[in-house]
Every structure is written in C-alpha cells, then in structure tokens.
Design a protein around this nucleic acid. Structure first.
Length: 374
DNA sequence: TCTGGGGTCCTAGGACCC
DNA sequence: TCTGGGGTCCTAGGACCC
C-alpha cells in the first residue's frame, strides 16, 4: 500500500506558522512580482478567490474581506518542506518527495488492518512536529491514493483528513465520487475527449478496456492509468537518489525590458542560480538553452506572448558558472531584437551527468546552435 | 508501377504534474 | 498597468547504420 501526504494550502500555511493571529483567517500568497495567487487558505477559497487568478482581478475582494496577503518566500517554504519530509522519513524508509508539499510513502509492512489508524497517527505527528496541516490518502496504487487524498481534502471534517481506499467497495465509492478531470494524469485535453465518450467519473474510466485506453488515451500512458485505477500498481516509487534531468530558472520581469544589457544581466543571474542547483546535486550540464518572451502589443488586452529560444551544446559538461555564462551570452545576443518588449526570460540546463562521469573532450569542437520560434 | 528491411539514437513537441 | 516557476514522461519522425 502507498500513502500520499499532501500539505494543505502549503505556502499560506507556512506564512501562518509565524503569525498565529491569522489562524482561521483568510490568507493568500502571491507569485513572483505579486502577479497572481499561488496559495489560498480554506477561508480565502470560501470567499471565491481563484487559484492562479491574477492578483489585480481579486484585489477588491481581498481588501474588502481583509485577507492577509504575502509575497512568496520560496526559501522559507523550502526549509519547512524539508522539516515535513524529515518527519515523514521517520515513518517509512521509502519516501518519494513528489513536490515541495507532497510525498508518497511506501507502507509495505504496515499491518493492513490498521492502515487508517496508522495514517491518522502519521497525520497528527506531522502536524504536531511541524505545525503544517496535512491530508493523507492511502491505497494500493499512486493514482488511487491521489483519489483518496483529494476526497480527504474536500471533506476535512467528515474524513478527519484521512481516507483509505482498500476494499473494492471503498474504491468503487471513491471513484464514483471523483469527476474524471480530477484524476491524476487526466489533463485538459484528455478530459474533454473523455466527456465526449460520456466518461464522466473516475469509475467510468476505470471500467474502460485496456485496448480502448491504448487507442484513445495516449497509448501506454492510458493503459497504465486504467490499471492503476483498478488497483494494479504500474507507477512505482522512485529512487530517492535520482538526479534531476533538467534544471530551469525562469522569471517574469517586474516591468517590461527593452535593453540588451538588461537581458544579459538577467540571463547571467539565472545561470548563476541554475548552476548552484546543479552543483548541489553534484552534476554538470552539457546543454544550455536560453529563451526570451516578448509581447509586442502596446495595449494590455492584446496579451500575446511569443517565445524565442536557442540552445548550445558545450564541448563537455560543466557546472562552472563562468563557463556557462560565457556560452549563454551569445545566445542572448542572437535572440535579441531591438525595439521588442520583453516580459520574461529563462535558462534551462540539460544533458545533465554526475560530476564523476564528465567526459572531457581533448579536441574542442565548435558548438552548434539552433533557433526555434514558437 | 515500382522503389529492402531492419535497427538505434536523437530531438521537438505534446500532455501532464505541482 | 496587469497573468509563477518549476518539473516529468512519451511519441513521432528524422538521421544514420548495416
């Protein structure tokens, strides 16, 4: 059996940790440059404040209801996330950190008649040790545990924040209560298609054949999804030692940028951050891509961003900031068009290998560059 | 009218996730 | 005036090989 432990309104909960007076009050956290809302407490949700909604569209509602507003502080969230994950590791030798606020736990070996009690104990301990409220879903597969977790979150009072989908009957009832678009792995494109087939709930989807899924739901991905919904594990726990295959640092600018000099500075800063992340996992990268996003419309409702990117392959993988910047700068210069209005830039390091596997190339070849326009 | 038959590796792009 | 910032996996198709 597997559990997923998910922190409730994580960023907002982190902010609330240090402001006990905000308990029971609506809180939202804003993205970089305070552009949009990335976390809301239940009280803020109840006011109709939308997730990922632009801040300015919700501003009136926020001010009227005296919602506490925070700019995001990713260092703080990373720190608290680490504490939560360490707590979970004291419960299971196999914890897969799935995102900053979620982890899967392998519950193999736990008494199967005591799973609910175990999960409740896990929840209470985590909340006691870290101050962050969590919801827990337990089931034989990852997809089913996500279904359970969602139901636990939706009805925190009724479920006490824990749901176990163990018996066929529990699984059927859970799936029947879950709209198909809320299944982990079903996104916008698939849910539209599924609705056309009159597949409306997770239960409907579970009852489709594997052949049907292979044809209509992205091949092996669809087959895996259906099997997982039936309780047959196909998405295994990941090795916690796995390294990242791609490291990105990207930002919206606070205000539009027009000058090459500013773009160069921004990209150099992003490379510096990305190289730090790279060295933290003791790796080096061989490919650097740089992208710029423009919006050349002068009035605001013509928001039609266009992305331009270039990449270069280094003669050998490196994690040296200077070297990476040196290779990235020509890309910025080639992408730059005088007079364009830039909204965002980013860098992506890929072809990542562990430091000890770096292949040195004695005869340095000229790097190749390719341009792509979206 | 026809134009081999496999393989492997790489990349771009789509779909999805939080 | 104005809309995060990260990631993963899979597939199709092209290049190249024998």
């Amino acid at each position: 059996m597997k559990a997923i432990v998910d922190c409730n309104s994580f960023y907002a909960a982190c902010e609330r940790l240090f402001k006990p007076s905000l308990h029971g009050k609506p809180v939202v956290v804003l993205s970089n440059n305070d552009g949009c809302i990335v976390s809301r407490t239940d009280e803020a949700k109840a006011l109709g404040i939308q997730m990922a909604g632009p801040y300015y569209q919700n501003k009136e509602e926020i001010e009227k209801n005296k919602v506490a507003v925070f700019s995001s502080n990713y260092h703080l969230y990373g720190d608290i996330s680490w504490r939560v994950m360490e707590t979970l590791r004291s419960f299971s030798p196999h914890v897969e950190v799935y995102s900053v606020d979620e982890s899967f736990l392998d519950l193999t070996g736990i008494d199967e008649t005591m799973l609910y009690e175990y999960a409740v104990f896990l929840k209470h301990t985590t909340e006691l040790w870290t101050g962050i409220p969590v919801s827990i879903g337990v089931a034989p597969t990852k997809v089913l545990s996500k279904v359970a977790n969602r139901l636990a979150k939706k009805d925190k009072l009724g479920t006490k924040g824990v749901i176990v989908l163990q018996t066929p009957r529990q699984q059927m009832e859970g799936l029947q209560k879950t709209p198909v678009e809320d299944v982990w792995g079903v996104g916008g494109a698939s849910s539209k298609k599924l609705r056309l087939f009159n597949i409306n709930t997770a239960w409907d989807l579970r009852n489709m054949s594997e052949d049907w899924a292979r044809k209509n739901l992205g091949g092996v991905v669809g087959v895996r999804l259906i099997k997982e919904l039936r309780g047959e594990p196909c998405i295994e726990m990941k090795d916690p030692l796995e390294i990242k295959k791609m490291i990105a640092t990207t930002r919206m600018f606070g205000k539009p940028v027009y000058e090459l000099r500013e773009l160069r500075e921004a990209v150099a800063t992003y490379i510096t951050r990305a190289a730090e992340k790279l060295r933290r996992q003791n790796c080096a990268a061989k490919t650097i891509s740089v992208f710029l996003v423009t919006n050349n419309y002068s009035n605001s409702y013509e928001y039609k961003p266009a992305g331009f990117s270039l990449y270069t392959t280094l003669p050998f993988a490196t994690s040296l900031t200077n070297l990476l910047i040196e290779h990235a700068m020509p890309l910025v210069e080639q992408l730059y068009r005088k007079g364009s209005k830039y909204l965002k830039a980013g860098v992506i390091l890929s072809s990542i290998v562990p430091d000890d596997k770096v292949q040195f190339n004695l005869f340095e070849k000229p790097s190749s560059e390719h341009e792509k326009k979206n």
